[in-house]
Design a protein around this nucleic acid. Sequence first.
DNA 1: ATCTAAATTTGTAATCATTACAAAAATATA
DNA 2: TATATTTTTGTAATGATTACAAATTTAGAT
Lengths: 133, 133
Amino acid sequence: MNIAHHLSEHDIKPSYQRIKIYEYLYKEMNHPTVDTIYKKLVGEIPTLSKTTVYNTLKLFIDKGITSTVTIEDNEVRYDAIVDAHGHFKCISCGAIYDIKYDFKDVAMNELKGFEVKETQVHVKGKCNQCLTK
Amino acid sequence: MNIAHHLSEHDIKPSYQRIKIYEYLYKEMNHPTVDTIYKKLVGEIPTLSKTTVYNTLKLFIDKGITSTVTIEDNEVRYDAIVDAHGHFKCISCGAIYDIKYDFKDVAMNELKGFEVKETQVHVKGKCNQCLTK
DNA sequence: ATCTAAATTTGTAATCATTACAAAAATATA
DNA sequence: TATATTTTTGTAATGATTACAAATTTAGAT
């Protein structure tokens, strides 16, 4: 995918920082925190400011090309995938897995007459790899 | 329900503060934040400290009689219901509704071989009341 | 190419929820 | 009653996020 083009398509001017931040999100797919993104990119972009990372992610969210994952109280994570999907966090190794689920099953009867804008499913436990160790 | 007894049963000494905090959680069922609890109870208990509210809720969670609701990034809410259930937050009036869902539908095939400890379902949108206004 | 205006980035300080920690108060035990 | 233990409290520290204004970069007009 052409990142500059993807940003432009969503009404975001493709500055150097924006391209790098989106590239990191998109390629790593590791649901990073702001701090993770900053620490990784400041090597390549020595003048990078954490404020820029915050500003940029907020812009990406406004424009609909990034979503947040708030599976923990004390940290917000970011995801280049914006389609409805859930997340599993392993309490042993800390890895976060994307999980699909049938959206209809979750949109329960109780919400008849409600307008649903967003659904987040967060599952915690131990992952396959940690269990077989 | 006898709150002192309920606390004792779960290995929590029923101090005045603990009883009042649990009572608030249990009776109001409004998924309050620490600040909400503090502001409400400090009228009745003028010496109450916010630290006590934090300590007490942490204890309740450890002992399994309270759960957290992290439907927003910037605030943790608390719930006296600990059975698996989801939450709907209205983006218009801010109210939080409890919602049941069929747990099996959410525990997806992808998590075969994983050990699931906890599932949270968070839905945001507009509630019935706000829509019909 | 040059000037000017607008957008973007940056650094610092402020904010706010939460935690750490130690002193004070209350409770239980001998 | 005296002592040990538990609980509560207040203050300070932490850490993520936001506010804000200056500096830099980019874009558009001439």
